[in-house]
Amino acid sequence: MASKIELNNLTFYYGNFMALKDVNMNIVGNAITALIGPSGCGKSTLLRTINRTNELIDGTRLEGKVLIDGKDIYDAQIDIIELRKKVGMVFQRPNCFPLSVYDNVAYGPVVHGTKKKAELDKIVEESLIATWLWDDLKDKLKRSALSLSLDYQQRLCIARVLAIGSEIILLDEPCSALDPITTLRIEELLVSLKENYTIVIVTHNMQQAARVSDYSGYMLLGELVEFNQTSKIFTSPKDKRTEDYITGRFG
């Protein structure tokens, strides 16, 4: 299958510290790919190389290539704003802006130049429908987003990404602030979204990876130890280190 995202010999440094070591990975489109591994192994770093938010941090350096749809996103020709539109990101803690529900979702489109109210209304509605928020929030669009419960806030953050027309959604431990029941709801939502989106999710929760993902990568100390279909990773890991992690002997 053609890969949507390709990481070729990707190495990443924070100053002198090598946080990613020669990672090679082909991420398939319209599927959910999970990154698992102990804390500090470089999952977030890897995720951030895909929308170039790593370079907001001073003193970082990248070697190797990241291709999206075959195009090198670190090429000098690349419009970084277009890239960030195409590759949306959802963070560990919901980071809704202290604005209304409507303004949170409309934020991206407004920033990218959509001015017509009718157009914005349509985008907001579609994004909220896709994240299963519309029925509950359609009468509360003027409410502050911060007044919502955490799982609503997290779904609003996903809606915000859908609103800018992203094709790829990166999620960095999106459920770590949520309880088990609302976590399941987010997982179902992700599964429903993969029809139209390419999803990469970081999680330190192995059950979550097993439940939602089609492909899983196990990372350790900056290396991608093993990457395969989730069913294979969890039933017949090839690498001893993966097996140790999955059977709970480590991590």
Binding site: N51, L83, R84, K85, F97, Y107, V111, I164
Partner: peptide, 18 residues
């Protein structure tokens, strides 16, 4: 700020709007 920049906003847009 991180959220805004990740949505493709510029630094100034981020400051002004968020």
């Amino acid at each position: 700020r991180e959220g805004s920049l990740a949505l493709g906003a510029t630094r100034w847009q981020t400051v002004k709007m968020v």
